[in-house]
Amino acid sequence: MDLVEVAKKLFDEGVEVIIGYQGNFNVKPIFAKANEVDKLTFNPLCIYNLTNYLTMEGFVDKVDKIGVVVKGCDSKTILQLLDENAFSRDKIVVIGIPCNGVIDVNKIVEEIGEFREFKDNEFKIKWEGDELVVEVNGKSYKFPKDKILLEKCKVCETPNPVVYDVLVGNLIQQPHRKEEFKAVKEIESLSLEQRWEFWIKEFEKCIRCYACRNVCPLCYCESCVLERLEPEFVRRAVRLDENIAYHLIRAYHLANRCVGCGECERVCPVNLPLSLLNKKVAKEVKDLGFSEFLKPIEVGR
């Protein structure tokens, strides 16, 4: 069954809204009601982690039953959120999609060059084995998988959703991969001074738009520590030291909770390597053995 058929069936069963993807080239999230079911799509440009919307503005409380489309990496968020009692399981219908990996749209524009005049529904993109096939303006382009794939997808451990009610498509057979923290180890091998230089260069760029906080599906506190004035742990001024404080606190709050969906790094307008920080925390939490005897909520409150 394809996505639209599944969605239609779910709407018949009493689901009110399905959070899914729409568009071919300009892919956007959509809160689809029953009459918009035809808009739902899924292609390799569907990069967003939609579980973020479940905890926004108390959305789950307003609706009886919500469907949400998840890829493998996003589905881990649902498990984590359930662990933290963010919402009750029977309110959510999880539509799982096995995923071959996703692509940044800018990379395609970069590869093909600027193309302006085309209609969104004439743009086609899909995986064919180990190749990505893009059709636009009657021309077709092919790219090898490992050249165009997003960095996080190259080391993806879970192409198949770990939790789902309905599955769209077939499960993917993939040799078991293990996170090796390659990028983190690279930084660790530098000397203290070199690391400091690397990080101040990055942190100085930060404009504190808080997109990394808002896009994170696990940053959903009703009142954020950054908005507190008394005590003011992170000052409002955008300077190097305040930026360091912000990023340390952000990464720390995700200790043992971050599922590695990589959204924070993707949205950053100035391209800070934020998942490096998250991965480092994950590595250390594993190394110190916290995860074994500690509930997630206890380390990074």
Binding site: K28, P29, I30, F31, N52, Y53, I207, R208, C209, Y210, A211, R213, N214, V215, V267, P269
Partner: peptide
């Protein structure tokens, strides 16, 4: 606005 994240990117840039 349903899908807006209410981050500051658009205003800061």
């Amino acid at each position: 606005s349903e899908i807006c994240l209410s981050c500051g990117i658009c205003t800061y840039l």
